[in-house]
Amino acid sequence: MILTPETLQEFDREIAKYPAGEQRSAVMACLALAQRELGWLSPETIEFVANYLGMAPIAAWEVASFYNMYDLAPVGRHKITVCTNLPCALSGGVHAAEYLKKKLGIGFDETTPDGKFTLKEGECMGACGDAPVLLHNNHRMCSFMTKERIDQLLAELEKQ
């Protein structure tokens, strides 16, 4: 078993949202849950999820490789995804990303040598009014990210 019983309970809760025989519908949620627990989606993890849901592993792989919040390679403990799309860019999204790059000493799609931070360039997160916007580990949105707030966030994450 590569996932904890608690995570598998959450799998079952997701599966229960769909009609009997349509458990495959839960694949996105289950992959997200597996990634939350394990940090990234290895082929073994994807196959485990596929088998759990009774679908072909390649079908789960299609899903995992299609949606860009799934990580098919290991990432740092803190993945920071910055939106640089046009509305955000007009209000400093690119500058916020540059500031993060400078502070962390890495570029997009890179991880700090201590394995703590990975930086990603994101596409529209549907929060353009909050620009600059970034996501921490996919599930926490940080809005209005001035340099001061970025400093605060990094300091907070550094401690974790």
Partner: peptide
């Protein structure tokens, strides 16, 4: 009624 989340695909 249930919620289903996306995961990064416009």
């Amino acid at each position: 009624l249930f919620a289903h989340h996306g995961y990064g695909a416009y």
